[in-house]
Amino acid sequence: MSGQKVTLAKALNMGLRKAMEDDPKVLVMGEDVGKLGGVFRITDGLQKDFGEDRVIDSPLAESGIVGTAVGMALRGYRPVVEIQFDGFVYPAYDQIVCQVAKMHYRSQGRSKMPMVIRIPFGGGIGAVEHHSESPEAQFAHTPGLKVVACSNPVDGYWMIQQAIACDDPVIFLEPKRQYHADKAELDDSEAPEPLFASRVVRRGADATLLAYGPTVKTALNAAAAAADEGRSLEVIDLRTLSPLDMAPVYESVRRTGRAVVVHEAHVNLGLGAELSARITEECFYSLEAPVLRVGGFDTPYPPSRIEEEFLPDLDRVLDAVDRSFGF
């Protein structure tokens, strides 16, 4: 497979396939994941090759999917649950927050919950309501859950396998508008980075952009545009949202003195708030300006014809960078 160029959708599909080949206890569950291969085709072909017992089309009930996955996990399986769209995870919210997140704690570590809950998240695909949400903070706020977001095909391939191998429940966020956007070369021979690690994806000296999932590309584009204007921006792909991997962030911000967080989720009590607080606590004397946040406004996700107004874009990121330099 070395050298193959694939999309994020294909990379996730290959990662799932590899995980299923490696461990017979890995199961896939969800709505339309079987014959259809999921509405985004992430599970394409898996039911054909692994059978209906391992790739399970579920009745249309998210609480049911996650709740039965809990039972499967208690029986020794490693369920990978697909939630069809971000906005449809809420019927399962109770199971995720009250059951999945707490099982290990309540059982004093006796019952493991090695479950992955895959959620296509974020906007930008012109969809109707409930199809463009960014619910990460709701899960990152819940002790017991780990939350990660991939941003590119190579990460998609490795991170899904690592999440499946993880003994803790992982909320696995996939930027749906990136599914079929860019291709990248997969190289199986290189060892992957650890799952719960952030990564500097572009070196820079003047300010640090913090992004994850769909906004990594936005941040990289902004950094490229800034470079044309003589400003050098560092970009960090957080990758893990809970736990956060702050060491690379602190190291970067201490060097640049400025940080701008970019996410699609509402700014109010979003992940940016936590990042801002931690950076302020740890890098106070290095900061040249307050940490700024660029994100979705504190409104419901708007009708798709104006979603580009809601979503952080290159201009809004650069505007925040300008404001940072204005301090």
Binding site: F297, D298, T299, P303, I306
Partner: peptide, 30 residues
């Protein structure tokens, strides 16, 4: 027609809160 960009702030609550007003005005200025 497409909705006006700032209409996104309408009707989140019965009355626009001060916080949201500030956000909307900030976006308008931007």
């Amino acid at each position: 027609p497409d909705p006006a960009p700032l209409s996104m702030f309408d009707h989140v609550y019965s009355e626009l809160t001060d916080e949201l007003t500030a956000q909307r005005d900030g976006y308008a200025a931007y």
